[in-house]
Protein backbone atom coordinates (compact mmCIF):
# COMPACT_ATOMS: atom_id res chain seq x y z
CA UNK A 1 0.00 0.00 0.00
CA UNK A 2 1.54 3.25 -1.00
CA UNK A 3 0.18 6.55 0.16
CA UNK A 4 0.23 9.69 -1.90
CA UNK A 5 0.83 13.19 -0.66
CA UNK A 6 -2.78 14.17 -1.20
CA UNK A 7 -3.92 11.39 1.13
CA UNK A 8 -1.42 12.45 3.76
CA UNK A 9 -2.69 16.01 3.40
CA UNK A 10 -6.27 14.80 3.82
CA UNK A 11 -5.61 12.76 6.94
CA UNK A 12 -3.46 15.43 8.53
CA UNK A 13 -6.35 17.81 7.98
CA UNK A 14 -8.72 15.30 9.61
CA UNK A 15 -6.29 14.91 12.52
CA UNK A 16 -5.81 18.69 12.70
CA UNK A 17 -2.05 18.49 12.40
CA UNK A 18 -0.48 21.05 10.08
CA UNK A 19 2.01 19.42 7.68
CA UNK A 20 4.29 21.06 5.15
CA UNK A 21 4.64 19.64 1.64
CA UNK A 22 8.02 18.26 2.59
CA UNK A 23 6.60 16.52 5.64
CA UNK A 24 3.78 15.12 3.55
CA UNK A 25 6.34 13.71 1.16
CA UNK A 26 8.28 12.06 3.96
CA UNK A 27 5.16 10.84 5.77
CA UNK A 28 3.77 9.36 2.56
CA UNK A 29 6.82 7.09 2.48
CA UNK A 30 6.84 6.25 6.18
CA UNK A 31 3.14 5.68 6.58
CA UNK A 32 3.00 3.79 3.29
CA UNK A 33 5.73 1.49 4.60
CA UNK A 34 3.86 0.82 7.83
CA UNK A 35 0.61 0.20 6.00
CA UNK A 36 2.28 -2.18 3.58
CA UNK A 37 3.63 -4.08 6.57
CA UNK A 38 0.31 -4.30 8.44
CA UNK A 39 -1.41 -5.54 5.33
CA UNK A 40 -0.12 -9.03 6.08
CA UNK A 41 -3.11 -9.23 8.46
CA UNK A 42 -5.14 -9.91 5.35
CA UNK A 43 -3.58 -13.39 5.31
CA UNK A 44 -5.32 -14.38 8.52
CA UNK A 45 -8.52 -16.28 8.06
CA UNK A 46 -11.02 -14.40 10.18
CA UNK A 47 -14.23 -15.81 8.75
CA UNK A 48 -16.72 -16.07 11.55
CA UNK A 49 -14.33 -14.51 14.06
CA UNK A 50 -15.80 -11.83 16.27
CA UNK A 51 -13.72 -8.67 16.59
CA UNK A 52 -12.46 -8.20 20.12
CA UNK A 53 -14.68 -5.79 22.01
CA UNK A 54 -13.32 -6.24 25.51
CA UNK A 55 -9.99 -7.66 26.53
CA UNK A 56 -11.29 -9.11 29.75
CA UNK A 57 -14.67 -10.76 29.89
CA UNK A 58 -16.86 -8.79 32.23
CA UNK A 59 -20.09 -6.87 32.33
CA UNK A 60 -20.17 -3.16 31.81
CA UNK A 61 -20.44 -1.48 35.14
CA UNK A 62 -22.65 1.49 35.78
CA UNK A 63 -23.14 4.50 37.99
CA UNK A 64 -26.01 5.48 40.22
CA UNK A 65 -27.93 8.48 38.94
CA UNK A 66 -26.72 10.87 41.61
CA UNK A 67 -24.90 14.18 41.40
CA UNK A 68 -21.43 13.54 42.78
CA UNK A 69 -19.21 15.86 40.79
CA UNK A 70 -19.01 19.40 39.44
CA UNK A 71 -18.98 22.69 41.28
CA UNK A 72 -15.30 23.09 40.45
CA UNK A 73 -15.48 25.71 37.69
CA UNK A 74 -12.18 27.31 38.74
CA UNK A 75 -10.37 23.98 38.52
CA UNK A 76 -11.95 23.18 35.17
CA UNK A 77 -10.56 26.29 33.51
CA UNK A 78 -7.38 26.73 35.54
CA UNK A 79 -5.14 25.00 32.99
CA UNK A 80 -6.71 26.71 29.98
CA UNK A 81 -4.35 28.71 27.79
CA UNK A 82 -7.10 31.33 27.57
CA UNK A 83 -10.21 31.85 29.68
CA UNK A 84 -12.49 34.70 30.70
CA UNK A 85 -15.38 34.98 33.14
CA UNK A 86 -15.25 31.25 33.74
CA UNK A 87 -15.46 30.36 30.04
CA UNK A 88 -12.84 28.80 27.80
CA UNK A 89 -11.92 31.28 25.10
CA UNK A 90 -11.19 30.19 21.53
CA UNK A 91 -10.74 31.99 18.21
CA UNK A 92 -14.08 33.19 16.83
CA UNK A 93 -16.08 30.31 15.48
CA UNK A 94 -18.03 30.95 12.31
CA UNK A 95 -20.94 28.55 11.91
Amino acid sequence: MSLDKATVARISRLARIATTEEEQERLAGELGGILAWVEQLGEVDTDGVEPMTSVVEMLLKSREDVVSDGGIADDVVRNAPKSAHGFFVVPKVVE
Binding site: I72, A73, V76, G86
Partner: peptide, 26 residues
Amino acid sequence: SNSKLFSGASTEFGSEPNSQVSPVDA
Protein backbone atom coordinates in the same frame (compact mmCIF):
# COMPACT_ATOMS: atom_id res chain seq x y z
CA SER B 1 -31.76 12.35 34.72
CA ASN B 2 -30.06 13.86 37.75
CA SER B 3 -26.53 13.38 36.52
CA LYS B 4 -24.84 13.17 33.15
CA LEU B 5 -24.59 10.14 30.88
CA PHE B 6 -21.01 9.28 31.83
CA SER B 7 -20.20 11.49 34.83
CA GLY B 8 -21.58 12.56 38.17
CA ALA B 9 -22.06 16.22 37.25
CA SER B 10 -25.55 17.71 37.44
CA THR B 11 -27.75 18.14 34.37
CA GLU B 12 -29.56 21.19 35.71
CA PHE B 13 -30.18 24.02 33.25
CA GLY B 14 -28.83 27.53 33.51
CA SER B 15 -26.02 27.50 36.05
CA GLU B 16 -22.77 29.48 36.15
CA PRO B 17 -20.40 28.61 33.26
CA ASN B 18 -18.46 25.38 33.73
CA SER B 19 -19.91 24.86 37.21
CA GLN B 20 -21.60 21.59 36.26
CA VAL B 21 -18.55 20.00 34.79
CA SER B 22 -16.59 17.04 36.06
CA PRO B 23 -13.08 16.40 34.73
CA VAL B 24 -14.67 13.69 32.57
CA ASP B 25 -16.95 16.23 30.87
CA ALA B 26 -14.01 18.58 30.31
